[in-house]
Design a protein around this nucleic acid. Structure first.
Length: 112
DNA sequence: GTACTGACTTTTG
DNA sequence: CCAAAAGCCAGTA
């Protein structure tokens, strides 16, 4: 038998939601990072799960590699970033803004 | 079993 | 800076 000492059990989708739900406020992760933390490179698969059940988790804490939030949700996400104090780079005056991944990228195990 | 889709990533021009 | 192409993974038909 293998070990399942730290696996929340469930399929890929369950694990994605569990991980995203663990992201603390003011922090963010990229689709690729979420997939990598799960041991996979399916950034698209993560997005598919978010589109399905992203409404159950802080979806705005998951962005693309460039620092832009999901397509069509930029306005909603910006409101959350301002509300949680997420570091956003200048130019947040329009839909061309982007989050400062260098500071907001969450590192599991480094939760204060 | 294959084929298509998608809240993606990265490289090249 | 933007556009196009190829690559990768999971779910669904």
């Amino acid at each position: 038998m293998a070990d399942a000492s730290r696996e929340p059990a469930g399929g890929f989708g369950e694990r994605v939601l569990e991980l995203v739900a663990e992201i603390p406020p003011g922090r963010v992760l990229t689709y690729g990072d979420v997939a990598a933390l799960l041991g996979s490179r399916g950034a698209r698969a993560v997005g598919t799960v978010m589109a399905r059940s992203g409404h159950l988790v802080p979806w705005w804490r998951v962005l693309r590699a460039g620092g832009h939030p999901p397509s069509g949700h930029e306005d909603r996400a910006l409101a959350h970033y301002r509300d949680e104090g997420t570091p956003v780079l200048p130019a947040a005056t329009d839909a061309t803004y982007r989050v400062d991944l260098a500071r907001a990228r969450w590192r599991p195990g480094r939760e204060p």
